[in-house]
């Protein structure tokens, strides 16, 4: 049953992505991206990644739509019609895509418990984190403790991006009234 839902949702996402890509109205495209993110959150739930689904639903369907709309209100809502010949772009994309799909043929089947990805450190996390951390959520213990360095790096990236936006658009600490 979940397999059918999985296939249907992924097909929806492909259709939606094509629609977003062809759309001239940027306002509509931004709203469609919200739906796209929400669909991907549902797929994440199906694939057992509840933490990821939670984040994607909060970020993709919430904050990123607001930011896209904010940008549209500061720039333009309509994409200019560009009737250029994009045959070269299409060719590049088709070649890259077929190479990538050829690459997937060697990958283990979806859900295969003997896939190499599950044979490295994941077993240890699942078996040992219960007694080492006494925390039920393995994702939290891997995120904050086993892979604390990674997360520190990611937080630093977010910090840097935030500083960048403050510098680029930074009226936030100026007194109102001054331009």
């Amino acid at each position: 049953m979940t397999e059918i839902i999985d296939i249907v949702l992924l097909s929806f996402m492909i259709v939606l992505a094509i629609a977003v890509s062809r759309m001239q109205n940027l306002f509509m495209a931004a709203m469609m991206m919200g739906i796209f993110s929400f669909l991907s959150a549902i797929v994440f739930t199906l694939l057992d990644a509840v933490d990821v689904a939670f984040t994607e639903a909060a970020v993709g369907a919430g904050v990123s739509t607001v930011l896209l709309l904010g940008t549209l209100s500061l720039t333009t809502r309509e994409e200019k019609v560009a009737q250029k010949n994009n045959a070269l772009a299409l060719l590049v994309v088709l070649i890259t895509g077929s190479a990538l799909i050829y690459g997937t043929l060697d990958m283990p089947n979806y859900g295969d418990p003997n896939a190499p990805a599950h044979k490295h450190v994941a077993d240890r996390y699942i078996e040992k984190s219960g007694e080492e951390m006494e925390i039920p959520n393995i994702v939290t213990s891997v995120l904050a403790s086993y892979r604390g360095y990674d997360t520190l790096g990611e937080v630093t990236v977010i910090f840097t991006a935030g500083i960048g936006v403050i510098l680029l658009l930074g009226h936030i600490w100026r007194k109102e009234g001054k331009q």
Partner: peptide
């Protein structure tokens, strides 16, 4: 496997 979940969870916010 919890490992991809951790990587992607942080990647979404980044």
């Amino acid at each position: 496997n919890p490992l991809p979940h951790v990587l992607i969870l942080t990647a979404i916010v980044v």
